[in-house]
C-alpha cells in the first residue's frame, strides 16, 4: 500500500473529510445548555466519550451571547473534544482562537433564512440531534477493469460484479452482491472489524485493515462461493454465507 511513498519522506498534507457532530445552540443560557447536555450524554455515554464536536453559533438569535470559554471547559470536563466553532461574530471568533479552537467555514450547502424571520426556539424544545449516520455508498453498475471506487468513511455496497483489474475500497465494510473478480479492500483506515461480503469469491486480492491475501492464497474451498471475510486477531477468516 505504501509503494508510492518515498522512504525519506517525513510527512505530507492530504485532504480528508470527516463527519463531525455539530452542537447547535439555540439559547445562550449556560445553565439550560449544561442541564440538557448532561441529560443527552447520560442517554448515550459511549457515543459522546471523546467525541469531537463543533459548536454551531449560527442559530443563536441576534443579541444572545453565549459564554464560550465556560461552555468549552464544560464540554471538555464532560469528555467531549471541542474542535472548533462555526458562525458567530468576529468577537466569537477571536475568543475561539484564544481557546485554540478552529474557526470552521460557513456551510455553503443551504441558504440560511434571514435573521429576522428566524424563530427563536426555546432550549428545552430542541429536537435531539440524530446520531450521525452515513449510509453506505451504493454502486449499481459493474466495476470495470481500471476503475477504482473508494467509499470514504463508510460502507460500500456494490450491486453488480467487480471485474478483473478493478479495485473497490472502503473505510467500512464492502458488500458485493455479484462476483468479486478484482480487488477488494475493506477497513482501509485499519479498522479490523470491517468485513467483505460477496456472492462469488474469485478475487485477485482481498484485504481487511491492511492484511491481505492474493488470489493464490485464498482457501480453495471458498472459490466461486458466497463468502464473508473478516479478521480474527491477526488471522483472516473466511465464513460461508447462504
Amino acid at each position: 500500500m505504501s509503494k508510492d511513498t518515498d522512504p525519506h519522506q517525513i510527512l505530507e498534507f492530504k485532504a480528508a473529510s470527516f463527519t463531525l457532530p455539530v452542537l447547535r445552540l439555540f439559547s445562550s443560557h449556560l445553565g439550560s445548555i449544561t442541564a440538557k447536555l448532561q441529560k443527552k450524554m447520560s442517554e448515550a455515554p459511549d457515543f459522546f466519550n471523546h467525541a469531537p464536536v463543533v459548536i454551531e453559533l449560527n442559530d443563536l438569535a441576534v443579541g444572545e451571547r453565549v459564554d464560550l470559554p465556560l461552555l468549552v471547559s464544560f464540554l471538555r470536563r464532560s469528555g467531549l473534544v471541542p474542535v472548533g466553532i462555526r458562525g458567530g461574530t468576529a468577537a466569537y471568533q477571536e475568543v475561539a482562537v484564544a481557546l485554540d479552537l478552529a474557526v470552521m467555514a460557513e456551510r455553503s450547502d443551504r441558504r440560511r433564512p434571514s435573521r429576522e424571520e428566524e424563530p427563536v426556539p426555546v432550549a428545552v424544545a430542541t429536537p435531539p440531534p440524530p446520531p450521525p449516520c452515513r449510509p453506505g455508498q451504493v454502486v449499481a453498475q459493474t466495476v470495470h477493469a481500471g476503475q477504482r471506487i473508494y467509499a470514504t468513511g463508510r460502507d460500500l455496497v456494490l450491486l453488480s460484479n467487480v471485474n478483473p483489474g478493478a479495485e473497490v475500497m472502503a473505510d467500512g465494510h464492502i458488500h458485493i452482491h455479484g462476483a468479486l473478480r478484482g480487488r477488494a479492500l475493506a477497513g482501509v483506515q485499519g479498522n479490523t472489524e470491517c468485513r467483505i461480503f460477496c456472492r462469488e469469491l474469485r478475487a485477485e486480492l482481498i484485504s481487511v485493515a491492511g492484511h491481505y491475501r492474493v488470489s493464490e492464497n485464498l482457501p480453495g474451498e471458498f472459490r466461486g462461493k458466497p463468502v464473508q471475510v473478516g479478521m480474527e486477531g491477526q488471522t483472516m477468516t473466511f465464513l460461508p454465507m447462504l
Binding site: A145, N163, G165
Partner: peptide, 13 residues
C-alpha cells in the same frame, strides 16, 4: 477481454 472491460469503464465515465 480485460482490455475491452477497461474500455467499458472509460465509455461509462
Amino acid at each position: 477481454v480485460r482490455d475491452a472491460d477497461r474500455m467499458l469503464g472509460i465509455l461509462a465515465s
